[in-house]
Design a protein around this nucleic acid. Structure first.
Lengths: 217, 217
DNA sequence: CCCGAATATATAGCATTGCAATGCAATGTA
DNA sequence: TACATTGCATTGCAATGCTATATATTCGGG
């Protein structure tokens, strides 16, 4: 028995914030709502303050990453798929470096943990398939291998996207992943081919879907 | 022919800022100088604004890391030393998580690049010694191996110190480094022993030297 | 059909932030 | 000793995030 919130306002503001992040405009309470017609109070109704906006932006970042993962097709070569996932991870981070920074530069809360777990799950499943395909030792723990793959991807993404290392450093991904997967049982020659094959999925420069989810209303 | 700057003021402010970072007090222009007797203008004379304070804090972070590296003794086992360097890197990041975040959450400038290169050089030298000791293939590029080691260390540090992964994840460092060094020629059994040996250098909980350098006056 | 309550929204204002401007004080040099 | 140069304290300003209050709007029940 009252006025209802318009979800379009929320998505509008998130998309605008993501855009401002992309063009490197400072995101302030007033600059965010400027031109949208909505008042500053909308930020409090829909996000409970600017902190909520940043939290929503973090979610948006994980959402876009998930969308990128979803575009990948699983092949008969699970090691290739694993490398392709990391390649996608890096491509996403480098296409949206500012958004990537927002995703990791604040203390993780429960909501972010869930989002991170969801993306990690993709890696876990790929590792599991690789183990069941006989590429890895039977006693390999998929979660551990997923975490290690993530560590390599995130380390590279962080040092290249907003850090000191140049773009070419990304190529180090191939030998590192190969070394990792060989160490858990994969045959060196075939592993190298698989990783290089998956690495070809690295496609920079396509911003990716700009869609945002209303999510937690 | 004028009044001279007192370097003690600069050091005092940096140490105070590092302390506030440590106890998680918000660092503002006024809160930084509060209680020190100096006025807000001192921040402009010594740091040219708050941005300069953050830049100095980043330098302080690299300085402390360098101090930690300097405490390490090089042994007859260069692979062990390499692992020990990464262990020190992680210990430093986890003992000063907020400072570590400051070091990497801003766009790198030339000054930071130099500091980062200086710490990377430690890894390069260790990799070089390992190659010359015959542990790695003769055509291994020390810089590349150093970068890859750094990537693993930074990835873990970032995901554990201010990220979603729990502290136990640090143990993944041993298999990852072992896999990396085996992939460039080291013998698996001995490599594992060397890495585990160097990993024992991981000593968390000791804040490390609180000294700060006047540095670039 | 309409009225009331609940909720969104608009406006104004507040404390705090980083920073610039100005005037004063201190100090090294001639 | 006189002066020029620089550090330093004070004041003030624009911008920030947020809150308080008043207004407008919409949904539910009679």
């Amino acid at each position: 028995m009252a006025r209802t919130k318009d979800p379009a306002v929320r998505t509008l503001l998130i998309e605008r914030a993501a855009h401002m992040l992309r063009v490197r405009e400072p995101i302030t309470l007033r600059s965010l709502v400027a031109g949208t017609g909505v008042s500053t109070m909308a930020v409090y109704t829909y996000f409970d303050g600017m902190d909520g906006v940043w939290k929503a932006l973090r979610q948006e970042g994980f959402t876009r990453l998930a969308a990128r993962f979803a575009e990948l097709t699983t092949s008969a070569d699970p090691v290739r798929d694993l490398a392709a996932l990391i390649a996608s991870y890096l491509a996403n981070a480098l296409d949206h470096p500012d958004l990537y920074r927002v995703m990791f530069d604040a203390a993780f809360e429960l909501e972010d943990l869930k989002a991170a777990d969801a993306t990690l799950e993709h890696l876990v499943q790929a590792a599991l398939r690789a183990r069941e395909a006989g590429r890895f030792h039977p006693d390999v723990v998929p979660l551990e291998l997923a975490i290690q793959s993530w560590t390599i991807g995130h380390g590279l993404a962080s040092l290249v996207a907003n850090g000191p290392l140049p773009l070419e450093t990304l190529d180090h991904c191939v030998p590192m992943l190969t070394a990792l997967y060989v160490s858990v049982g994969d045959e060196p020659g075939g592993c190298r081919r698989s990783v290089e094959d998956g690495w070809k999925q690295l496609r920079l420069g396509q911003p990716g879907s700009s869609r945002s989810t209303p999510s937690d209303p």
